[in-house]
């Protein structure tokens, strides 16, 4: 019995429960996929699903890591880098999530539904961005002063 289990593990790479779990996962996903087909939306669904698989690793990651490398190249080895990185990252996060409102991409639907314009969102996002950079800059100035006085 033990030897059979060992042979299975060597051939497969994990215990039988592992295969069982994954088979159940693929069965449920395949069933959900048949419902997607039955709903008549499978082409669009598939395109968006594949897009969702790669959007972080092959689109967002290259974008934000390139920006980060560029920022570090410009700032040298300055300790200020994180006071730039954090507000820029947070502002970018807000834009990533709320771009349909901020860039007024959903203006037509939004106006029809809510009865108001999306116009204020760009100003709000810009104001939050300014506040993030200002707060970060202030914190940096306070830290530098703290360091200088503690050195004295």
């Amino acid at each position: 019995m033990n030897r059979r289990a060992g042979r299975w593990r060597r051939a497969y790479g994990a215990g039988p429960w592992h295969l069982l779990l994954l088979a159940a996962c693929f069965a449920l996903a395949a069933y959900a996929a048949t419902r997607v087909v039955a709903a008549g939306i499978w082409t669009g669904f598939l395109v968006w699903f594949v897009g969702a698989v790669i959007v972080h690793d092959l689109v967002l990651f290259p974008l934000y890591s390139t920006a980060d490398i560029a920022a570090r190249a410009v700032s040298g080895r300055s300790p200020a880098i994180n006071h730039l990185r954090v507000p820029a990252g947070l502002s970018g996060l807000l834009l990533l999530v709320w771009f349909p409102l901020v860039l007024r991409a959903s203006e037509r639907n939004y106006k029809g539904a809510v009865g108001l314009s999306t116009a204020p969102y760009l100003a709000r996002w810009l104001a939050i961005t300014v506040a993030l950079f200002a707060g970060s800059g202030l914190l940096y100035a306070l830290r530098r002063r703290g360091k200088r006085t503690s050195r004295r």
């Binding site: 996962c25 449920l28 996903a29 959900a32 997607v36 669009g44 709320w98 939004y110």
Partner: peptide, 28 residues
């Protein structure tokens, strides 16, 4: 939630069936 209906499918079936695919993979 931003009423930006760029996806080429109705939200309800896509979000429900997408949830089951995601939850199956997440549980495992």
């Amino acid at each position: 939630i931003q009423l930006f209906y760029v996806f080429p499918f109705s939200f309800y079936p896509a979000h429900l069936y997408g949830a089951w695919i995601f939850l199956a993979a997440l549980a495992v």
